[in-house]
């Protein structure tokens, strides 16, 4: 009887360890986020998350100086079209926007670019939301290969990283998906070669989207660490002779109204613009009330994501302002206080 009991407990322990070990080993062998450089399954790409890793691998493997302009931002700048920029400037452009990117992501990407490409121009599209100090660290950034450019940065959640990253259902399902797709001969294509996002069409009706980010407004505070990241980006650009064009990404009128309803938040919104202008000297403001002109179809994907149509207007406004038929204040240039005095 005693033997049966002990055998049961041994079976439990050994089975737990075996299942856990096999899963962990499988995920390590796929290395879905390309953290360890392991590629037992001979996968062509490991683009399992929303663009970041795909773009990283792409830039990692193209010839030096292939692109002269890079667009950096969150999904807000997904539809800034590199081909249009090329048409307007004669310089080859790449859209390096990553969903939910935060200022820390931009810093890592700038360092990656300097390491691999050293562009002539960087368009940095900022989001109000992403400067919130209460946003948790983006676990995908920590999982991604560009994490290696943040070695000396202060980042939460470093602890237990490998175990947390690769002993999880998410990494297991991503690893499984990659291997399964390889056997099916399928490729996951979400972006064009120049980094432009392929999908998404503007909906005819955006009815309740003003609510999308409402909960993120609570306890909103611009983080010192975020400001520090932006300052580091400016210094890096200056040091490597890169022209930095900074834009404050477009949000729709309903969203601006939501912000204005909350006094404290509105003050923070204004100081976000002022701070950005102070850090970078001048910024293009696409998040002011002139956006009311572009309310509704086909200019918005939702409250905080301009469609291709509006993104094209933004790009034209940046590079050839005079030829664009847009409200005067749309893309208004805000200068730093030390320069020409702040505007909002």
């Amino acid at each position: 009887m005693m033997k049966t009991h002990i055998s049961y407990i041994k079976t439990f322990l050994l089975t737990s360890l075996t299942i856990g070990f096999i899963i962990f080993l499988f995920v390590l062998s796929v290395d879905p986020y390309d953290k360890l450089g392991i590629n037992v399954w001979n996968l062509e790409n490991k683009a399992v998350s929303a663009g970041g890793n795909f773009k990283y691998s792409h830039i990692e493997n193209v010839e030096k100086n292939e692109y002269q302009i890079f667009i950096l931002g969150s999904s807000n700048a997904n539809h800034y079209d590199p081909e249009l920029i090329e048409e307007l400037t004669g310089l080859k452009a790449y859209n390096y926007c990553v969903h939910n990117a935060q200022t820390l992501s931009y810093l890592a990407i700038v360092r990656h670019l300097i390491d691999k490409q050293v562009p002539k121009i960087i368009i940095l599209n900022l989001d109000f939301f992403n400067l919130n100090e209460n946003l948790p660290s983006d676990i995908r950034l920590i999982r991604s290969p560009i994490y290696k450019y943040l070695i000396n940065e202060k980042i939460e959640n470093k602890f237990d990283l490998l175990l947390k990253t690769y002993f999880s259902w998410k990494s297991f399902s991503d690893a499984w998906r990659l291997v399964y797709y390889k056997f099916l001969g399928k490729k996951i294509i979400t972006h064009k070669k120049n980094g432009a996002y392929i999908y998404e069409f503007p909906p005819k009706l955006i009815e309740t989207n003003f609510r999308y980010f409402e909960y993120e407004y609570k306890d909103f505070k611009i983080g010192d660490k975020n400001i520090l990241h932006l300052e580091k980006i400016r210094k890096l650009a200056h040091h490597h002779n890169i022209k930095l064009i900074v834009t404050l990404g477009a949000i729709n009128m309903a969203q601006i109204k939501e912000i204005k309803k909350r006094k404290q938040l509105y003050e923070t919104f204004k100081s976000y613009k002022e701070l950005s202008a102070n850090i970078f000297g001048k910024v293009f403001d696409f998040s002011n009330e002139s956006v009311a002109f572009y309310n509704g179809f086909p200019y918005g994907l939702d409250a905080v994501h301009p469609s291709s149509e509006l993104s094209n207007i933004i790009v034209q406004k940046i590079f050839s302002s005079d030829s664009v038929d847009a409200p005067l204040n749309f893309g208004k240039i805000l200068h730093s206080n030390s320069n020409k005095g702040g505007n909002n």
């Binding site: 049966t4 055998s7 049961y8 079976t11 439990f12 089975t15 737990s16 947390k164 002993f167």
Partner: peptide, 23 residues
């Protein structure tokens, strides 16, 4: 009936699955 070993396998699978979700 805990004399059957299948419950040891079930417990092990549930434990590993849950730990993986603890991320």
């Amino acid at each position: 009936d805990f004399s059957q070993k299948r419950y040891a396998y079930i417990s092990a699978a549930v434990l590993v699955g849950s730990l993986m979700f603890m991320n």
